[in-house]
Amino acid sequence: MTDDHDAPGTRSRGPRMARAERRSQLLAVALDLFATEGFHHVSMDDIAERAEVSKPVLYRHFPSKLDLYLAVVDEQGAQLLATVERAVAPIEAGPLARGEGRAVVAAVVEAYLGFVQVAGESSTLLFESDVTRDSQVRGRVERADAEVTRRIAEVLVTVTGRDRGDADVLAAALVATAQGAATYWLRHGGGTGVDRVVELVTSLQWRGLAGLVRPDYPYGDA
């Protein structure tokens, strides 16, 4: 079933698509435009033109530019969280073998580097949104960070034996460092390879974390 029927007197320029397919296409187009031009410099006309759809079709999926922007932010946040979830999974799967604790820290750092590699400048929609003065946008942007921090904090409670308050602070520091390094690499990385960035940031973070692993935790390298 397609969802691209225009109002009388209008005509879609692009091919007809199923509703879910069209929504994904519009999100991809909006992501690119918002990332390169900024929220305030992109209009719904621009998005419809790039997507080769009429404005009635665009508004059928997203009633306003803000609704579209928030959907883009939500999708980016979900992708980042899924990447981090995969990184922390080994700890929750069972006892760690020698060297695996450091590998998990590296995986979290790699998650952020991988995210900015794929998302490019669109990663700034989560890290440096130009619309965060709007409370709705700020809440959505901060939600992604909060979810990632929460997941890492849960792991830290298990590994370090610290209370949740301490774990939240440690997790926020880890996230901020990984995010900052990833953003710096995206903008100024130059000849520094991703592997080298992961190695440097992981060494910095693991040196601190290794000393916090609780004595009775079944881990041979702490």
Rank of each mutant, 00 (worst) to 15 (best):
G14Q: 07
L58F: 06
R162G: 15
P215L: 11
V104T: 07
E37C: 08
A35F: 15
L81I: 00
G139T: 14
L80R: 01
E142G: 08
Q179K: 15
A222K: 04
L170P: 03
L58W: 08
D168A: 13
V72W: 01
L174W: 02
T10R: 14
A173W: 01
E85Q: 13
A222Y: 04
L70Y: 00
V141Q: 10
A107M: 11
E100C: 05
A107D: 12
S129V: 08
V155M: 01
L126M: 10
R60Y: 10
P63K: 07
P63M: 01
E85S: 11
L68C: 03
Y219W: 15
F127Q: 10
Y69H: 14
Y112D: 08
P215R: 08
A20F: 05
E100W: 09
A78I: 11
A82M: 07
L66H: 00
T202I: 10
A111V: 11
L96K: 01
V137I: 03
V148S: 05
A28F: 14
S203G: 13
L27T: 04
L174S: 12
A210P: 03
E100K: 12
A111Y: 07
G99F: 03
E147I: 06
G193I: 09
A222N: 04
V53H: 11
G161C: 09
K65F: 11
V84F: 03
D166C: 12
S43T: 07
L125H: 05
E199G: 14
G220Y: 11
R196Q: 08
G190A: 09
Y112S: 08
I91Q: 09
E110V: 02
T10S: 14
V108N: 12
R22K: 09
R138F: 11
V88Y: 00
Q25S: 00
R150P: 01
K65E: 12
Q76P: 06
R196E: 14
G189V: 12
D4Y: 03
L33F: 07
D216T: 06
H5W: 03
A93C: 08
E142V: 13
W185H: 15
H188D: 11
G77Y: 06
T177A: 09
L80F: 06
R138A: 15
E199F: 13
